[in-house]
């Protein structure tokens, strides 16, 4: 069983390592991740929101849905823990 798990891990790792061949080198400013939406965010965020911290601007404004439902997720987690662990006081 352990050998099987080890083999599965090794296979996944080799596939992923093979996949890194197509990745951009570290710190490449022209990598695909840095070319699409992020330059728009960086250039416009300060003018449109007056917030110098770009992370906060994107977190609170451009990606507000993400943050909102993420707050709901941790709220649900808190509720779930209370529901799972509390016992009826007799």
């Amino acid at each position: 069983m352990k050998a099987l798990a080890f083999l599965a891990t090794l296979a996944t790792g080799i596939v992923l390592l093979y996949g890194t061949r197509d990745f951009a080198a570290w710190g490449d400013a022209a990598s695909p991740a840095s070319r699409h939406v992020s330059p728009v965010y960086i250039e416009r965020a300060v003018k449109e929101t007056h917030v110098p911290n770009l992370v906060t601007a994107i977190l609170g404004d451009y990606r507000g849905y993400d943050t909102m439902f993420e707050t709901v997720v941790i709220y649900c987690a808190g509720l779930a823990v209370v529901c799972v662990l509390r016992r009826q006081k007799t």
Partner: peptide, 13 residues
């Protein structure tokens, strides 16, 4: 409107 976007982020935070 722009000041409100800044302030809205703060309230949300």
């Amino acid at each position: 409107p722009i000041e409100w976007r800044s302030l809205g982020i703060f309230l949300v935070e």
